[in-house]
Design a protein around this nucleic acid. Structure first.
Lengths: 110, 110
DNA sequence: TTCGTTGTTCGCAAAATTACGAACAATATT
DNA sequence: AATATTGTTCGTAATTTTGCGAACAACGAA
């Protein structure tokens, strides 16, 4: 899906869209909230928190990993998931910059 | 009210996911950027900006309207799209609150 | 009326997403 | 070796998303 790439904005917009897409499902928001707010980070605890099958949870975690928002590490016999703090901060800046770009006065709409 | 009460300003995770989902496509980010930054807001100008068919642009605009991030108004013979400033601000707060909820220290991951 | 302009909607196809159970892999324990 | 624990991957199905061209609707102008 390489439509809408424009040299001047391309990188930011594509990355912002990827972050947004990763956050675009209630289960993934719940997972991120869980990891951001609590003291547990093992698959089993995440899985217990959600009313969906573990295969599905695993899939959502995979997507979140691929978006860069979290990391996954094997800690035998468990798997530990953590917020990727650097990318989390990057996403925060991206979103905030995006929303802050709205002009106060718009010749067309105001 | 207890100052340390958790989630005093609760975020609706479903709503956050809806906003995120709406932003989860490069074309829709491009449309929102265009509307947020420029002085034009007519379908034709948005359509010219994107390398996709007008039917597809119309569809993306419909999704953005349904998410609440923009409004659409007929101004015969054109259609004017504008950022929905109130919901835009709401989305900004939602995202920012969400990202800010990350704890400094995590007993599990640090 | 007929034409041109502006966008939406329809119908379809291809691709991606979401979800699940079952099978599997890796390891530790009995 | 057999069993239990922890998650991932596979195979599949249902649904949603994305995208396009063509048809359509609403309007003003010739």
């Amino acid at each position: 899906m390489n439509c809408c790439e424009k040299q001047e904005y391309a990188i930011d917009n594509e990355q912002l869209a990827r972050f947004a897409k990763a956050m675009g499902h209630p289960a993934r928001i719940a997972i991120l909230s869980f990891l951001a707010n609590l003291d547990s980070c093992y698959f089993g605890d995440i899985n217990n928190e959600l009313p969906i099958a573990k295969a599905t949870v695993s899939q959502h975690l995979k997507e979140l990993k691929e978006s860069g928002l979290i990391t996954g590490t094997i800690e035998v016999p468990k798997v530990k998931y953590c917020i990727h703090r650097e990318n989390w901060a990057k996403a925060q800046v991206y979103f905030n910059t995006f929303f802050a770009s709205l002009k106060e006065k718009d010749l067309c709409c105001d």
